[in-house]
Design a protein around this nucleic acid. Structure first.
Length: 104
DNA sequence: AACGTGACATCTG
DNA sequence: GCAGATGCCACGT
C-alpha cells in the first residue's frame, strides 16, 4: 500500500482510486486517503502526488497549503491547468490527469 | 465489543 | 447529465 504510493514516479500523479486499485482495494479509495493521512513516513510518502479523480487535492488538508502542493508538483513537471471556468478543490487548480496521471 | 466517522469512488434514480 | 445513496477498511469513541 504505502509501497504503491512510494512507487508513484516523479512528475506524475495518481488518483486515490488508482492507488487503491494497485493496493488491491478497488473500492477502498477512502482507505487510501486515511493511509496517507496516517502518513507513517513523512517525506517519504508524497501525499501531494495523490489527487482526487478530478485532479485536485483535498483543500485545506494538504501538507502545507494548496500553493505548496502546486509548487511541488509543478517543480516535478506536473502540468497544471488554471481554473478553466471549473474551479474544483484546491484553489481551482487541477492537474492535467490526461497527461500526468500515473499509469502502471 | 459495537457504532459512528472519514483525504473517495462508483452505481442507481 | 446531475443528484442522491451505498460500499469499502481502518480508526476513534
Amino acid at each position: 500500500m504505502y509501497d504503491v504510493v512510494r512507487r508513484i514516479p516523479r512528475g506524475t500523479v495518481a488518483t486515490y482510486g488508482q492507488v487503491a486499485a494497485l493496493a488491491g482495494a478497488p473500492r477502498s479509495a477512502r482507505f487510501v486517503g486515511f493511509a496517507l493521512h496516517s502518513n507513517p513516513e513523512p517525506g517519504v510518502i508524497p501525499c501531494h502526488r495523490v489527487v482526487f479523480r478530478d485532479g485536485s487535492l483535498a483543500p485545506g488538508f494538504a501538507f502545507g497549503g494548496p500553493e505548496r502542493q502546486r509548487a511541488l508538483l509543478e517543480e516535478e513537471g506536473v502540468v497544471f491547468r488554471p481554473g478553466t471556468g471549473d474551479p474544483a478543490g484546491a484553489a481551482g487548480w487541477r492537474v492535467d490527469l490526461t497527461r500526468c496521471q500515473w499509469r502502471a
